[in-house]
């Protein structure tokens, strides 16, 4: 039902768009018609360019998310294990979490230059803190009964974390991953728009920037379509499935 509604509204928006562009009020350099956009989209796909840039962006974001999630878990574990680390991690989050990745860009360029490393760093920064914040909150608010039962049943140490802390904090962890992904995805596109190669690959953000420079407005829209599609796929397929297979199945969704 939800999907049908989205389809219906998307159709209406595209219709609306087509009518406006057909009215001739805006030059096609400002608002290309849906037809032109779809044509540019298909052409770019056929050339392989758009798909290549998309793959480049996806690989880089997966790399950043992977590293970011890894460190988030490491810090979250340290903070439940040692009181001193808990204070340290809390301070770290308070400092770093409100900083948008893009605001750090000039500094990151100074430290790591303008290459791929810098983009990965921006993604790690964007993903790490929300995931860490949510995971530690999850760990801290875990119902006491689960840890009591765990102790009672003889679960100790790292086992306690993997078999009880993590699944019990799943609603928090998933929402942290969601926020981390969304932030990282935005930061990635923005960072790519700022630096990238001219002929070589620079990702979707770079593709948009390049189309801008060459005044290919329809091509910019084509890249936006890809961004929307990826956003929807990740949201609807990945996260909704993840939730359906975990916290919804377990009856742990917050009502």
């Amino acid at each position: 039902m939800m999907k049908n509604k989205k389809l219906f509204w998307s159709f209406l928006i595209i219709l609306f768009w087509q009518v406006i562009s057909m009215s001739g009020t805006f030059s096609s350099l400002i608002l290309p018609s849906p037809y032109m956009v779809i044509k540019a989209f298909l052409e770019s796909i056929m050339r392989g360019e758009l798909l290549n840039e998309t793959m480049y962006s996806l690989i880089i974001i997966l790399e950043g998310l992977f590293i970011g999630t890894f460190f988030a878990f490491l810090l979250a574990l340290a903070s439940i294990r040692y009181k001193i680390m808990e204070d340290f991690v809390e301070t770290l989050i308070a400092i770093a979490h409100p900083l948008p990745g893009i605001a750090l860009l000039p500094l990151i360029i100074l430290w790591f230059g303008t290459g791929r490393t810098s983009v990965v760093f921006v993604i790690i920064h964007s993903a790490l803190w929300p995931i860490l914040l949510n995971t530690t909150t999850g760990f801290r608010t875990i119902p006491r009964i689960f840890t009591d039962v765990g102790h009672n049943l003889g679960v100790r140490g790292i086992h306690l974390i993997s078999t009880i802390y993590i699944p019990a904090s799943m609603p928090f962890i998933i929402s942290g991953l969601r926020i981390g992904w969304a932030r990282a995805w935005r930061a990635l596109i923005s960072a790519e728009m700022i630096f990238g190669a001219v002929g070589g690959k620079g990702g979707l953000g770079w593709y948009i920037f390049k189309q801008r420079v060459f005044m290919d407005t329809a091509g910019m829209f084509a890249a936006l379509i890809i961004i929307v599609i990826i956003g929807m796929l990740v949201e609807d397929l990945l996260f909704e499935r993840l939730e359906a297979n975990t916290i919804e199945k377990w009856g742990m969704t917050v009502k």
Binding site: I145, P167, A168, M170, T246, W250, G251
Partner: peptide, 11 residues
């Protein structure tokens, strides 16, 4: 065995 029903692991 606790009073709380939620002593079973929901996952």
């Amino acid at each position: 065995i606790f009073q709380d029903y939620n002593q079973l692991f929901p996952w």
